[in-house]
Design a protein around this nucleic acid. Structure first.
Lengths: 143, 143
DNA sequence: TTCAAATTGACAGCATGCTGACTATTTGTA
DNA sequence: TACAAATAGTCAGCATGCTGTCAATTTGAA
C-alpha cells in the first residue's frame, strides 16, 4: 500500500497548490496570475532579453512563456520590441506601467509569503529554503 | 527588487516541476500521469467512494476529478458504478486491472522518489516532510 | 559562397486546475 | 406534502505546462 498522504511528492503538490491559491486570490484584482508575477519579477531584474533566454532563466517552457508574454502584453505591462541582432527574436521589455507596478506587487507578494509561511517558524523557513535549493537540481548529466 | 530566485514559493514551484517531470517520464509507458497515479493510490486504500468524497480526500477539485476519472475509465482501470443510495452519484471502483497495477506502479513510484530525493539526506527528508505537513494547512476558519 | 543544421518563436493538441453555470436529485423545512 | 435549498456531477471557458511540428532566420562547415 502506497502511503501517499505521507509521500513528499504528494505533500509538495498540495503545499504548492495552497500557496498558488493564496497568491492567485491576492492578484485577482490586477488580472494577474502567480506565474505572470514570477515572470515580471525576473523582468524587474533585467528586461530586454529574448524569449529563449527568459525561458532558460525562469525555467519556464519556451512555448508556455510565449503565452505568458501574450497576456502581459495585452495588459500593457510588457512589449515585444524587435531584436537588433536577430530578426527571429524579440526583446521583451517592461512598459512604464509594468515597471511602476513593481513596488505594489512586491508588497502583495510579501504579504502572501507571510500568510503562506505562517504555520512554520523562521528557522524552519531557512531550513526549507536550503533543502528546496538542493532539490531543485535540474540538468545533471545528459548533455 | 524581489529576490525571486530565493523565494520559497518560487523554489517550491520549481521543485514540484522537477519531481512531476521525473514521474511523468517513468509513467509514460502506462499512458498515466502523476495525478492519475495519485488518484489510484487513494483508490488502492479505499474505492467505491463518490467523486465528491474522493475530491475531498485527495484535495483535487471536483471538476478536475471528473476528467481524471474519465481518462482512468478509458484506460480500463476504474469504473463508474451506480450509487445505491443516491441516483445523482457514482461509486468509483477499481477494475481488476486497476487493482493489479498497484504493485508495479508503486515500485515505479518508489524509484522516482529515490531519484527525486537523491540530492538530500534521509534526515533532511524527514525534516522536509514535517515542514511540508505544517504548510499543508488548508481550511483554517472561513466556515 | 553555399547549403545543411541549429535556433527562434508560433501553433495545435492534450492534461491539469480552477471558476461559474447548469441539470438532476435529495434534503430539510414550513 | 410541497417546495426551497443544498448537493452530485457535467460542461464551457480560461491559464499553465508540456510535446511535436512548422516557417523564418541564423550559423557553421565544406
Amino acid at each position: 500500500m502506497y502511503d501517499i498522504e505521507n509521500s513528499i511528492g504528494f505533500l509538495i503538490s498540495k503545499v504548492y497548490q495552497r500557496g498558488f491559491g493564496i497568491f492567485k486570490d491576492e492578484l485577482e484584482r490586477y488580472d494577474l496570475t502567480p506565474q505572470q508575477f514570477g515572470l515580471l519579477a525576473f523582468l524587474w531584474i533585467e528586461d530586454g532579453l529574448s524569449q529563449t533566454v527568459l525561458s532558460q532563466k525562469t525555467q519556464i517552457d519556451r512555448t508556455t512563456i510565449g503565452g505568458l508574454i501574450d497576456r502581459l502584453e495585452k495588459l500593457g505591462l510588457v512589449g515585444r520590441l524587435p531584436h537588433p541582432e536577430d530578426r527571429r527574436a524579440y526583446r521583451i521589455c517592461l512598459t512604464d506601467r509594468g515597471t511602476d507596478l513593481e513596488k505594489e506587487l512586491c508588497a502583495i507578494a510579501a504579504g502572501v509569503t507571510q500568510k503562506f509561511l505562517a504555520p512554520i517558524t523562521p528557522e524552519e523557513q531557512t531550513v526549507l529554503r536550503t533543502i528546496l535549493k538542493k532539490l531543485r537540481t535540474s540538468q545533471e548529466g545528459t548533455p
